[in-house]
């Protein structure tokens, strides 16, 4: 299939970017979206042009590295699918495809389609962990009983790959779905209870410091999430935050 591409090109964080037109021919319908991008880049390199920078790693839909705002939606038109798992058969011969980076103040563009998602790392550092005794008498995690329903809920939250599609989809560029998934996966388990209050307060504080927008319960994040993280997590985080800010002694 032959396609017209409108790709965001931006030299670095401080320069002004713009959409540039590209034509690509003979794309296999069986190739993935990123393989189509590889094909374009090979053609650009052959011509001596600057290849398009985009993020990618595992290409199996589990690492959270790939991004791309495709035709007005994060990770493209397919539901519950990362860009690397999106296939060209979802497009038609002759289609024009817009390809843009995640757009948020907290995700500055590094180059072209690649953005710096370090803000997510700093949110995790602020409290998205549990302290575990590793001094020789480590307790087997399985020795602590966890109700099946709680374990399932925690696991569902933990499937968040931190790609940032929630921020990209949100009209407010809010990171609440990501942060709430990371709060929930620990808040639901006995191991996470000890630091629960500090965790939610610190992570939300860091989220605000990074310059993400506010949650107005639009729900676009959950619709676009490739791992189908649900809005229940945001409600859980709101509960945790309300409780912690009313009862925290610090």
């Amino acid at each position: 299939m032959d396609l017209k591409l409108k790709i965001w090109r931006q030299a670095n964080q401080n320069s002004k970017g713009e959409l540039k037109d590209y034509a690509i021919k003979n794309v296999s319908a069986d190739s993935s979206f990123l393989e189509m991008m590889d094909q374009l880049n090979e053609e650009l390199i052959d011509k001596g042009d600057d290849p398009v920078v985009f993020d990618h790693d595992c290409r199996e839909g589990i690492c959270g590295m790939c991004s791309l705002h495709i035709n007005g939606e994060p990770h493209g038109p397919e539901n519950a699918t990362t860009t690397c798992q999106l296939h060209m058969r979802k497009f038609k011969d002759g289609d024009t495809i817009f390809i843009e980076p995640w757009r948020a103040r907290a995700f500055p563009v590094i180059k072209d389609l690649s953005v710096d998602r370090g803000a997510f790392d700093r949110i995790i550092e602020a409290g998205g962990y549990v302290n575990v005794n590793t001094s020789g008498n480590t307790l087997d995690a399985n020795a602590i009983p966890v109700p099946k329903a709680d374990a399932d809920e925690a696991f569902n939250a933990a499937t968040c790959i931190g790609c940032g599609a929630c921020v990209a989809a949100c009209p407010n560029a809010s990171a609440m779905l990501f942060v709430s998934a990371k709060v929930s996966q620990l808040a639901l388990l006995p191991q996470g209870k000890v630091e629960a209050k500090d965790r939610v307060l610190h992570m939300v504080n860091q989220m605000d410091l990074e310059g993400f927008g506010n949650c107005s319960n639009v729900g676009a994040c959950a619709e676009e999430c490739p791992k189908e993280i649900s809005l229940e997590n945001i409600a859980r985080m709101n509960r945790e935050y309300l409780g912690a800010s009313l009862t925290s002694t610090k």
Partner: peptide
């Protein structure tokens, strides 16, 4: 919220998700 996204999307299909 406006400040949180200084550069707007050129292609934006919000009706597909909200």
């Amino acid at each position: 919220n406006r400040k949180a996204r200084p550069e707007r999307y050129r292609s934006w299909k919000p009706n597909r998700n909200s």
